[in-house]
Amino acid sequence: MQLDRFIIDATTEVFASMVFMELVAGDVIREDRADLGTNISSMIGLAGDLKGLLSVHCPRQVALAVSGAMLGMEPEELDDDVKDAMGEIANMVAGGLKASLLEAGSNVELAIPTTVVGNSIRTSGFSGASTIIVPFSVPDGDFAVELNYVLG
């Protein structure tokens, strides 16, 4: 399965249809990286034939720009609107990944999105899992979509 391709396609689709923002995917990273310069991470669990966690990690200015474009407003803080918008993006990217996996014959179900805001936060999957990190660039900076997973 081309999980990296599925993640890139799902993220690109969500940004085209919901955020109305162009984005460029960078080189895929396949190791756990502690420091992604993250101020806000939205995460959602996946269960079934693939068990995992999909996370969208953003620095502050990218989260403000992306959620502002999605909501049609100009947030200045990482407030509840921004957290909800970023959680919804994680939810929709995971939904796109779920659809691609189903086409490839794997059934997964989604949990609910959660958002963490802070400075120098570190997220980590468990040490036996595989990691795919896809960096993306938007006009306001870079962010990353990470999938920690094991195949069932």
Partner: peptide, 22 residues
Amino acid sequence: IELSLPSTISGDEYNFSSQEQV
């Protein structure tokens, strides 16, 4: 019901929140 993968978050200071409707 199925479980996703366990994961951890750590840091000096952070807020943890879910969407509404829970």
